[in-house]
């Protein structure tokens, strides 16, 4: 993920002296502000590419993933919070687009099932230990 960005940044930077610079294409070029770029990069790692489906948009070569990276960086640069951008995407593509699902009725089992399994396991162990100590 880093290498193509560096490469793209180098491509964008090289001819800058010769010709008037185009506005950077934020699909490939990092934001100048490191704090905002860090926010955008973290968000892009948790947005699923709707074309390749297994990949986050940060690691996908699909055109639509590039469009989403551009949109994410532009919105973050404009002052939107990462969660506002995520909510905008979820409002259009559904929870599926986010690798970081929100807690709601349909997604609650993601958190409750492991907790329930842990509680059940602890109960079994506790019973076994109690029986052993009373024997």
């Amino acid at each position: 993920m880093i290498a193509p960005l560096v490469f793209a940044a180098a491509l964008a930077a090289a001819p800058a002296a010769a010709i008037p610079a185009d506005p950077p294409d934020y699909a490939q070029v990092a934001l100048a502000d490191p704090a905002k770029e860090a926010q955008a990069a973290a968000l892009m790692d948790t947005i699923r590419c709707v074309v390749c489906q297994g990949q986050p948009i940060s690691g996908s070569n699909a055109d639509l993933a590039a469009d989403m990276r551009r949109m994410v960086r532009e919105r973050i640069a404009r002052g939107d919070s990462p969660e506002q951008v995520r909510a905008w995407l979820v409002g259009r593509y559904g929870d599926w687009i986010s690798f970081s699902p929100r807690m709601r009725t349909a997604t609650a089992p993601l958190w409750l099932v492991p907790l329930g399994a842990l509680a059940g396991g602890l109960a079994l162990v506790a019973r076994r230990l109690r029986r052993r100590s009373t024997r």
């Binding site: 074309v51 055109d63 639509l64 469009d67 989403m68 949109m71 259009r92 593509y93």
Partner: peptide
């Protein structure tokens, strides 16, 4: 331009 309308519609292809 840049897939903006496509994304606005929640279209994935």
């Amino acid at each position: 331009e840049a897939g903006r309308a496509q994304m606005a519609f929640g279209s994935s292809g």
